[in-house]
Design a protein around this nucleic acid. Sequence first.
DNA 1: CCTTTCTACTTGTTTATACAAGTTCTACGC
DNA 2: GCGTAGAACTTGTATAAACAAGTAGAAAGG
Lengths: 242, 242
Amino acid sequence: MPKNKYELIYQTIKDEILSGVYSAGDLLPSENEYTARFGCTRNTIRRALAMLTQEGFLLPRHGRGVQVIWQPQRSRSIFSIGGIESMKEAADRNRMPMSTRVITFEERICDKTLSEKTGFDEGSALLYVERVRKINGENVILDINYFLKSEAEGLTAEIAAKSIYQYLENERGLNITTSLRRVTAEKASRRDFRYLDMEDYDFLLVITGQVFHSGGIMFEYTQSRHRPDMVCFIESAVRRSV
Amino acid sequence: MPKNKYELIYQTIKDEILSGVYSAGDLLPSENEYTARFGCTRNTIRRALAMLTQEGFLLPRHGRGVQVIWQPQRSRSIFSIGGIESMKEAADRNRMPMSTRVITFEERICDKTLSEKTGFDEGSALLYVERVRKINGENVILDINYFLKSEAEGLTAEIAAKSIYQYLENERGLNITTSLRRVTAEKASRRDFRYLDMEDYDFLLVITGQVFHSGGIMFEYTQSRHRPDMVCFIESAVRRSV
DNA sequence: CCTTTCTACTTGTTTATACAAGTTCTACGC
DNA sequence: GCGTAGAACTTGTATAAACAAGTAGAAAGG
């Protein structure tokens, strides 16, 4: 339940777009009409619309109105990733049955190499977790996570098999805020072949990220290795005057 | 030259971060200090800070201050793509010598298959352009573009060899606004092998996008096929309460 | 010495208002 | 009929102000 007005408005309009109330090319009601409908000021409406614009749903046009540019996807891929979303949340959203198998769960101390790769300080105690995600009976995602042990205390292999984020947020009260992500394509390693059903692919789409919580420290380094037909990464960009 | 206050403030603070005035973990001056410095209200400051937060430079912490989380990159890749940036702009920014070779420049009529792939209306007259980008003496990027002919009138192969965006924006006055992008990994096609120096790679990182101008219509469908070691796609995400 | 309370900070949300600037269409004058 | 001026919309930028809520440190009390 959103506790802020702008989030409520954002969700309401987003739902209307997704449910097909408007189709691509249509103009949304004007900001003034929305202020009447939601009983708030233009500022709050504009904040909600700005979020939807940022996500690629809308194209505001000075003097004219706000146009919907979202079209239902014709993508071949099942997942589309945007924002910070755990695998489980994405699966739920797409109504895909997903199961998780934990293949490694151990403690590691961050050495120099690992520090350069992950950004954790040398000597930090880390939790190393490897998980395989099975979707529709196929092993298609290999998730590799390093958690800062001090922040993820109490995490067990059993929890990792369900949803780590749910545990961290609900049980431990951690507030996950910001994530920096890098998307690359990589050759499949022996480990990928061993644990994933690679069919005739020999490469992966890899999403690497550093996750910060509201405490301001980086507490997770994560790598999600996807069989290329099962993921696509969608984002929208707004061009800024150069 | 930014004509808006918030853009000026955004640029100023961004430059300060990039030039190392603050390092990762530092707190920025408070919003109130900035209002004094820039002579504007908190709203305007907050707008600039929000943009930097969205781009992954900052982590604001309620009650404490705004923390810089940006660290100079340790990425192995040369390009990092974020926002809408033409290949030429990215190359300039990274001070990489780049040359472009146009291998196809022709008119095409959008048929049903192409319409489903690109999102253009069936029957539209399109300009089809294929270009190879050579960086440091290696052919590493294959760019495939479809432009709506009516919007890109006057485009020639000579212009395509330089910078199409520069032509569209400066000469024709088109205002490029929003882009929806999809990042995938794909097996290299015969065409990729023919035109690119693939070394021992047999797959590519593919960035597919639809670009809108301020006229509100989609005028470009673009596909950038990158040899995987030459690109990485960086973005930041802000988690929204579920 | 330790704990609690209060105060002075910080960022987060929302209202209200004014004007700038782009678009569309109507009404007027010729 | 045609073009121009203008009114009535739209979104974009900026100011001002109030209050909520989280944080840190100083002061007060035991």
